[in-house]
C-alpha cells in the first residue's frame, strides 16, 4: 500500500494508541514518512480512543485521517462511527468477539477476527490489539515480520523486553487468522 491512512478505534484500555505507535514506528524503521495523531478527550481512563496513523513514501499532508483506507475497530460505537467513512476499496478489520454487526457495504473488504477470544484462548490477555495488527500486516503488507520484531525491540521498554516473543506470537496469530 503506497499511502496508508489508517484509523484505529476502540475503548480506552484496549491498547489502541499503543497499536498506532507500533505501526508508526514500523513505518519509521522502513524509512518511510509516518504520522500518528491521537484524538484526545478530557478523560484519562476509559472512554473511547482512536488515532490516525499515516504511512507513505511522500511527505504526509494531513495527519488527521477523515476517510481511512484501513480501519481497525474494537468496539461497536467505533464501528458505527467510522464504517461509512472508509474509502471505497478500503479495508476494515473487526474484532468480532466484541462486535457482532456485519459490514453492509460491498465496496470495501471486511475481515472478522475474533481477536479478544483468540487472545484469551492463547494466554495472550490484553494482546487482542496486536492480533488485529498482525491481520493488518497480512492484508496490507505495511511492514515485514522482521521490521515488526525490530520495532517491538525498540519501543518495548527494557524492563518488559521479555514480552516480545509473546507479542510476536500474537502478530503471528493475527497474520494467520
Amino acid at each position: 500500500m503506497k499511502d496508508m491512512n489508517a484509523i484505529l478505534a476502540g475503548f480506552g484500555g484496549q491498547g489502541i494508541l499503543f497499536m498506532g505507535k507500533v505501526i508508526a514506528y514500523a513505518g519509521l524503521f522502513d524509512n518511510r514518512e509516518v504520522s500518528w495523531l491521537p484524538s484526545y478527550g478530557p478523560e484519562m481512563r476509559g472512554g473511547t480512543a482512536n488515532c490516525s496513523v499515516c504511512i507513505s513514501d511522500d511527505p504526509i499532508c494531513s495527519p488527521l485521517v477523515n476517510n481511512p483506507n484501513v480501519l481497525i475497530v474494537m468496539n461497536l460505537p467505533s464501528f458505527d462511527k467510522f464504517i461509512d467513512k472508509v474509502v471505497p476499496g478500503g479495508i476494515v478489520i473487526i474484532d468480532s468477539t466484541l462486535i457482532d454487526k456485519k459490514v453492509q457495504r460491498d465496496d470495501i473488504t471486511a475481515y472478522y477476527v475474533p481477536a479478544t477470544a483468540l487472545a484469551e484462548e492463547n494466554g495472550m490477555k490484553g494482546l487482542a490489539n496486536i492480533i488485529l495488527m498482525g491481520k493488518m500486516m497480512s492484508v496490507t503488507n505495511f511492514c515485514t515480520k522482521e521490521t515488526m520484531q525490530k520495532t517491538l525491540e525498540k519501543i518495548i521498554p527494557p524492563k518488559k523486553q521479555h514480552l516480545i516473543p509473546k507479542n510476536m506470537s500474537a502478530v503471528e496469530l493475527g497474520i494467520n487468522a
Binding site: A24, W36, L37, Y40, P63
Partner: peptide
C-alpha cells in the same frame, strides 16, 4: 496547536 503538540512524526 493541540494537533501539532499531540501528534508524532519522525
Amino acid at each position: 496547536d493541540g494537533m501539532l503538540g499531540q501528534m508524532m512524526e519522525p
